[in-house]
Write a protein that binds this DNA or RNA. Structure first.
Lengths: 140, 140
DNA sequence: GCGCTAATTGAGACTTAGTATCAGTACTCT
DNA sequence: AGAGTACTGATACTAAGTCTCAATTAGCGC
């Protein structure tokens, strides 16, 4: 989906400078599968400051390359996103793999909900947790 | 719904001691409308330590008197819950009032989702944000 | 009412996630 | 080459929450 080259091109297109720190963070992020925390990445880019990793990951999020994944305990994690638009996740609690759901299955209920509650609905969170097919079949 | 007396009875039934600190936290929590943070409560119970407020709110959560509300930015807030079981929230981003949705509208999609993804789904988060009827009508 | 003891407490150190500040470095543009 | 801006790492800081530990106390049996 994303690779180093395409991300560099996008950064250049937006007039961001291509620096060693940014390349290191992007490379580290692309090497990860599943979801990861910022400090996960901090640990994989020695020499790059924590603040820079945060800044770069924020930048990549704003550009749609990374998205936040809500975990079961309410904490946030990150992942390389496939679809840029609004989507939801199915997160494996055993191996941390993430399946993206590109259709927004919450949108169907928005109209009814607005009618029955009087709310003007502007946003929502929807994330699922479970065990992926692989983990379900392994003995664990 | 909940009042001081009924909560005290529940605590006693579970052999928890009724202490001034616990009474203060419970009272402060019951006085709040909408959702609130732990430190909100810490600020309203002078003399009670922060750790104790956290402990008491955790206790109340486990007993189903409080529930966590996920906010738009991914942070967690708390509120006095009406329904004890699984439910979702509609949170007003303007006045912080919260409407509880006692029906779990996500449950319908669980079967389909499990079939199409191979996941064994064990949990989910679903929270809505918007402007409540009152805030929608005010000039804001 | 008194004493016992386990439960509870507050202070404070610590953790995790993230932001703000700031002086120094390194590009870019001319 | 010089000026200006983008970017950087170090560090301090905030917010939310946990952990430890010595001191206190609620509520039991008497």
């Amino acid at each position: 989906m994303h690779n180093l080259k395409s991300i560099v091109q996008r950064l250049e297109a937006r007039k961001y400078r291509i620096t060693p720190a940014r390349l290191a963070v992007v490379t580290a992020v692309l090497e990860r599968s599943g979801h990861f925390s910022v400090d996960d990445i901090v640990g994989r880019v020695p020499g790059v400051g924590r603040a820079t990793v945060f800044r770069t990951m924020k930048l990549l999020s704003e550009m749609g390359m990374l998205c936040r994944v809500l975990l079961e305990d309410g904490s946030l994690s990150y992942r390389v996103s496939r679809h840029q638009g609004h989507h939801h996740h199915l997160v494996c609690v055993s191996c941390a793999s993430v399946q993206e759901l590109d259709a927004c299955i919450a949108s169907d209920m928005l109209g009814d909900l607005a009618r029955s509650t009087g709310f003007q609905i502007e946003g929502h969170w929807l994330e699922f947790f479970g065990r992926c097919a692989a983990c379900r079949n392994s003995v664990a």
